[in-house]
Design a protein around this nucleic acid. Structure first.
Lengths: 237, 237
DNA sequence: TGTGGCGAAATTGCATGCAATCAATTATAC
DNA sequence: GTATAATTGATTGCATGCAATTTCGCCACA
């Protein structure tokens, strides 16, 4: 790997690793993210860590407080609801675009992702949340619009974080079935149905998840980040 | 001003200054933004410049290319259209929220902003574009939702950039009248009408502006940034 | 027991410097 | 004159170090 590619890879990889760790609840909402410690973990200087944290802050996954450092964002319940509502509006557009672009190959991609979701169904909930989020991101990719992809990705990950924080156990269980129905409507070229199903799906996810204001889980140690950081240090992923 | 407040102010101020300069076409799409030069202009080291550029890149106003530096973003026509379409979806939500929150004081704020737009109508087009964008940002503020504000702001500024790039002369002329109509519907508490007017307004702005693929204007020198940079160096706002 | 003050340690903000990379210019060959 | 290679200057990537700020632990006092 050329030095340039390696170094570009590192910053992106650190951001991506942290994003996954946040989505998978290894880094919990409210948890402090000290630059020095992260730098040591990933085997880089604080410069790259600060850059990665800046990016994640721009995405709403991390909060930066002057002189107090970075911590994993803790969205309020209102914020969570607004994010889902906003997402519902955006996914309308995505569906319209995907229907226009639909080919058997694209359909196969969606089916393959759904199979991954089914396979992970009984594994662990954070992984399920991440895969469910990635279903939507795949849809946005298939829309062919970089703009839609950017916002679906960002808002999708932020919704994922709120689910991490607020979701009741098993509140994501029916998501796979709903994804399947959406795929079916897409394959039938039925835009109206697909849009309705998507709207219903997102509303249902939010309704199932956001009834509680109780925050969940203890604050874990940065040690749990080790597998993610090792991948980056090894140049993998 | 305490040292902490001053330093925080600086990074935010640099970002804000650059954003305004981009929106007002002082910094044109495609223009290179060398870190050293900007640092000298603003009287800070490259560290703060890099941070500001990272933020503006996250907002889509600046493109960062590895080893090639930063330049003002040059959105494609497709991207421009997608942004306006996305914005239309989001502003629907904003209108619903603002109607719920509406008070005489909020209405007065909107009217005051409209008066500013009227006053600037024959001044210069870039200022008009900026004020028109800020009308929408004010609406989003009045929605009371930080989430909606964040995305209206970002997408609004990005739409402003595309107008800078693609808009035909006078293509923003009818915008003030349309803003006035929206304010009227809001003051009447007529959500349906307000939403329709907003949709129509944004579609009309895009239609008026985006018919041409011809890019406009010469690349200007960084010297034009001086008034913006001076404000930051002087600690003003 | 609870509160406040102080000093030390930890962390953050950000300037600086060096190596790597790119862009522009000059030299050389055909 | 054109194309290619070499050189030079400009810029970027990013580590490091220092000053400023925050946090933590300890002690004294009511």
């Amino acid at each position: 790997m050329k030095a340039a590619d390696k170094a570009k890879h590192r910053t992106d990889m650190i951001s991506s690793a942290l994003r996954s760790a946040i989505l998978e609840r290894v880094l919990m909402p409210g948890m402090k993210l000290p630059e020095d410690s992260l730098g040591e973990r990933f085997g880089v200087s604080r410069t790259l860590i600060r850059q990665s944290l800046e990016r994640l802050a721009a995405e709403g996954l991390v909060e930066l407080r002057r002189n107090k450092g970075a911590m994993v964002a803790k969205p309020s319940l209102e914020e969570a609801r607004d994010l889902f509502e906003l997402r519902t509006q955006i996914e309308d557009l995505v569906i319209s675009r995907v229907i226009k672009n639909m080919t058997p190959e694209l359909l196969a991609e969606l089916e393959a992702h759904l199979a991954k979701e089914v396979e992970a169904e009984h594994a662990s909930e954070p992984i399920s949340i991440r895969l469910a989020t990635e279903f939507h991101i795949l849809l946005a990719k298939l829309s062919g619009s970089p703009v839609l992809l950017r916002y679906v990705e960002e808002i999708g990950y932020r919704c994922g974080l709120t689910l991490s924080l607020y979701a009741r156990p098993h509140s994501t269980d029916c998501g796979i079935q709903e994804h399947r129905q959406i795929i079916e409507a897409l394959s039938n070229g039925d835009e109206e149905a697909a849009r309705k199903l998507m709207r219903h799906h997102l509303t249902a996810v939010a309704d199932r998840a956001l009834f509680t204001t109780e925050e969940r889980g203890p604050l874990l140690y940065l040690d749990a980040l080790e597998p993610y950081a090792r991948k980056v240090r090894d140049g993998g992923a």
